[in-house]
Design a protein around this nucleic acid. Structure first.
Lengths: 172, 172
DNA sequence: CGAACTGTATCAGAAACTTAATTAAGTTAC
DNA sequence: GTAACTTAATTAAGTTTCTGATACAGTTCG
């Protein structure tokens, strides 16, 4: 791999902006707002969370999360469980039905990206494949701004295809 | 470059989802909704557009765009100009103040990505740099579905307000 | 224990979006 | 040339989603 190549942050920002806009406007079968889908995604990805945690990660008020969770619960997409370690708190779990929605949307995204990737050259696809671990590590660094730096581990096959979740494990 | 490396679409989808969520919740100085910011981004990036074009690209109704543009115009972020080629249409232009907001947010994103990139190894940064042209081409392929091979679907014309309740997009 | 703090719920009101109806300009057919 | 149709934008009314303020229960600390 050529280490002499310089990474243009401006180009990276542009590309990620474009992918963001391309990703977001994917229509959803059920009438769920973007924030609602994002909450389901968070719960499916990182396990049960408190309402205050969700409010923080989605950058909406705690009041909005309470109302949204109430509606999601009525629709059977999440469940409220008491937090055994804190009588005030509620842990929101995603149900199988809720996870199915997240998975369905991911499948649609994969289908769309697959079509696009098919039209790239093998060399282009390979260049993306090589870069994926580094991109994944940027996300990880963002989620854990401090804390111990793991070794770089630039092994290409590292990010598990079938083991999607392990990044955020929280003690209680 | 090794052409033998296979690109995992599942991994790519996951990484892009994470970047999307990381990008979106970036706080904005002024109180502008995501859709509003997206419209400003579109106008700043691709020049003046009709209201119907904006409604199509943002996947909201024409009515919502009209109301949003009215408010943006009141705030001096966009301007309405008559379309010389069609007396019914209006062309929405972004003003300098509107472009400044887009640029400001991009600068914030670049600063954040810069911090993260600094903590990667040179080899990791290089791998991303090598992959950027391919990623940019994926976005381009998405925006212009008519490639070299087949004429595919035009997709542009009839999108109107086609009852987004059930399934918004119809393929042919 | 009591005071201060934290996590959640509730309610009124604001903001953003949708549907439906309206106005106006352009296009097509007779 | 005018009637009928289509397209672009606006307006009005109603719904959903979010914020701000407040209340209340559980926790922490003096």
């Amino acid at each position: 791999m050529p280490e002499s190549v310089e990474l243009s942050i401006a180009d990276l920002t542009h590309v990620l902006e474009d992918f963001t806009r391309m990703h977001i406007r994917l229509p959803s079968e059920r009438r769920l707002s973007f924030t609602t889908l994002s909450v389901l995604h968070t719960l499916a990805g990182s396990g049960p969370k408190r309402l205050t945690e969700l409010a923080g990660s989605e950058q909406v008020t705690q009041s909005a999360i309470t109302q949204m969770v109430t509606k999601l619960e009525r629709d059977g997409l999440v469940e409220r469980h008491p937090d055994p370690s804190d009588g005030r708190a509620v842990l929101v779990h995603v149900t199988a039905a809720g996870a199915a929605i997240v998975d369905g949307r991911r499948a649609e995204r994969m289908a769309r990206l697959s079509e696009l990737a098919d039209r790239l050259t093998p060399a282009e696809r390979a260049s993306i494949a090589v870069a994926l671990p580094a991109l994944a590590r940027m996300v990880e660094l963002h989620e854990r701004p401090t804390g111990e730096d793991d070794a770089a581990a630039p092994e290409a096959a590292g990010t598990g295809t079938d083991t999607p979740r392990e990044s955020t494990r929280r003690r209680r």
